[in-house]
Design a protein around this nucleic acid. Sequence first.
RNA 1: GACCCCGUAGCUCAGUUGGAUAGAGCAACAGCCUUCUAAGCUGUAGGUCGCGCGUUCGAGUCGCGCCGGGGUCGCCA
Length: 550
Amino acid sequence: MKRYLEERVGAALERLGYAGMAELAFEAPKQEAHGDLTTNIALLLAKAAGKNPRVVAKEIVDSLDMNPASVTKTEVAGPGFINFTFSPAFFARKLEGILREGASYGRSTVGRGVKAMVEYVSANPTGPLSVGHGRQAAIGDTLANVLQWTGHEVTREYYYNNAGRQMRVLAQSTYARYRQLFDPASAFPEDGYQGEYIQQIALLLKSELGDSLVGIEEEKALAVCKERAEQVLFDAIKSVLLRMGIRHDVFYNEDSLYSSKKINEVVDEFRSKGLAYDKDGAVWFKATDLGLDQDRVIIKSTGEPTYRLPDIAYHREKFLRGFELVVDVFGADHIATIPDVLAGIKALGFDPDKVKVVIHQFVTLMRNGEQVKMSKRLANFVTLDELIDEVGSDAVRYFFLMRSNGTHLEFDLSLATEHSDKNPVYYVQYAHARIASMLRFAMSEGAIDPATDPSAVVYDVLQSPAEIALMKQILQFPELVEGTAKSLEPHRVPTYLHELATAFHRFYHDHRVVVPEKDISTARLALCACTKTVLANGLAILGVSAPDRM
RNA sequence: GACCCCGUAGCUCAGUUGGAUAGAGCAACAGCCUUCUAAGCUGUAGGUCGCGCGUUCGAGUCGCGCCGGGGUCGCCA
């Protein structure tokens, strides 16, 4: 649709000598009365041409060579917009292609051959995944999906560290709980993890090893506790992610950066470029040379690196592994580290613009109109697992994806657990199920399946406002997918699907599909089949099921 | 104190990268099922787009300054 106009209007601009003076763009007007596509090119050209915008618009329109079978109306409106209205047949004939493409309708090749990585979740195995991780998981996984839809070669990656301070606290907490099983009076560390899951791991250890860890050297006992706790927790993390339909391709261990000396390589390179120096027994990264407001410690005076250094080394690895698009999905609490990492990457000679950081804000849980305060250290947080138990994976994913990344997400448990029609995911799924049911009915009535011979369908009979509105909505899907991939904003998909479902429900209300007139019936069945395809494809991108019955 | 995100209908949120008369869901009110799924549809009501300047043909959108909410600022991750 856009391409068609770009060619025609572009040619007109050439003829008038306006070519290249302003960027030609089309967009869908908000108001139906303004046609299907509009351009502001005349407004942009007016100044340079020294003419009234409406005059310029008139010139362009007069110079246009349009096929009246496709574009039924071209008019100058308002301050100088040019509005184009397409014929219903123009839209209708595009349905044939959608019927043929089916499950791949909406895919594109704009990212073909581009190696992309999406890093998401990346929680250390110190406890169950939280609701916040759930949002990140949904966002990251959907971005990975959408990038695949646009032809990127996608790797889903999970980065973790099982060697740091957090894991030490985990080991200590577990061991303390274990000892308490034998001596209730024994101490629990001040900063230990309070969660009940620690006690369960302790019980597991007791059942496996009895009291054999009680008398032995503490370091040995801690090592056993750490290993077992990590294993249990990582299994739990992977299983929750699997419940959400998420499977990472690579689990990248921070520790490997040390054993393979990648950390040292970064430090050496910084030093050789004069971007690292020693002060107060620590090694500093000269971030101020790269425009940041202060230098940062990368190796503490104790000899241990700060988190910054492995983060930089890890991102360097992403580039060395050949990724051309690096998407990092982080919670808002990690926002501070990003400038350091990007500066580090730049210092090492890589292009920081290839790193796209997607920051998502926090999730607030509401229960009975009250906010549920969550803290990982205290016991009172709702795990992702529990949330899925209550609401189901489809609703969890859909809810997490409904809001734009930068918006705090309010998740109303009381509402979501109602399983009522208030749940927006049902609205979209219902449209899909309704079509599936109707197609079953149509076939049982001996209707012609439009998919058996898409070229035989008489699409031109689709002309009513509801039919046209639905067709237009369907035809926007490929652009939506591309836009989502480009902007890395998954919430666009639920917004779109909701609009599509509305357009369908209206159509369904206005028209009976299975009717005696064969041409009309088949054409409407084709329209329904296309709608179902787009709903299914959109839901697939979200990782939400598209049920055939509800 | 510095930096980042947010502020749009009673509530939760969209707003196509600067376009024409700002939208949806929920809540409220009034209607629509003997006919392919009423988990649906139609209508009514609801707004100083936090406030104020500025940029220009044109601002919810861009810039600056305030106000309010959240977040981050460590030789923690």
